[in-house]
Amino acid sequence: MIASVIRGSLKLSCLMEEISCTHCHTLIPPGYYNTPNLISCPSCHIPIRIDVFPAFYRGFRPGKEGETLIDDQASCFYHPQKRAVIPCDHCGRFLCALCDVELGGKHLCPGCLEAGKKKGRIVNLDRHRVLYDGVALRLALLPMITVWFTIITAPIALYLSIRHWNSPMGVIRRTKARFILAIVISGLQVLAWATWIVYLVSRRLIPYCMAL
């Protein structure tokens, strides 16, 4: 009994990560985990609460190995000597346990995963996105403080709004309101500049024409 407990604790200590105070980096003993309220760190005495979940005790799960192919079984597309266990949810290729990547409840092959990441098809793999609607709106609004810069920025804002109208926006759902607002504001600015230029030209041209 004692031996099994010791073996268990040894196994546990091998699997378990360590949790340390985020302020003084002192290791926090397990007695401090999952308390309902904040408790003082044993070292720096700063109130701290540690919520631990079962994954903490389970540690790393070893990766699966593909099983070797026997007789006329279906083989993996990437490893012909391994037995296929599942088809790719995207391209339908047969995959062994090693090639099967589970992401967001879907089973994907490494090829589809790579392609999805590059083309931005798999939302869960996106780590960064440019918010063109935000850029266009700021480009339309901010230079209005100086007025004169809008002669350059208004066409750029208009171009960005039209060019990226269908580009993927943020992962969190956003409306096209910013694009519409940017188009309206920058459109008005372009119109104002055009009117101003026409007015200036006509002021110069009309006396010249009259003289002729």
Partner: peptide
């Protein structure tokens, strides 16, 4: 930051602990 967004996904199956410090 208004011009771009950075994302971090934490899957429920991977979360081991949440540490709150006052």
């Amino acid at each position: 930051n208004g011009f771009s967004e950075d994302y971090k996904h934490f899957y429920f199956s991977d979360i081991q602990a949440i540490i709150t410090r006052r």
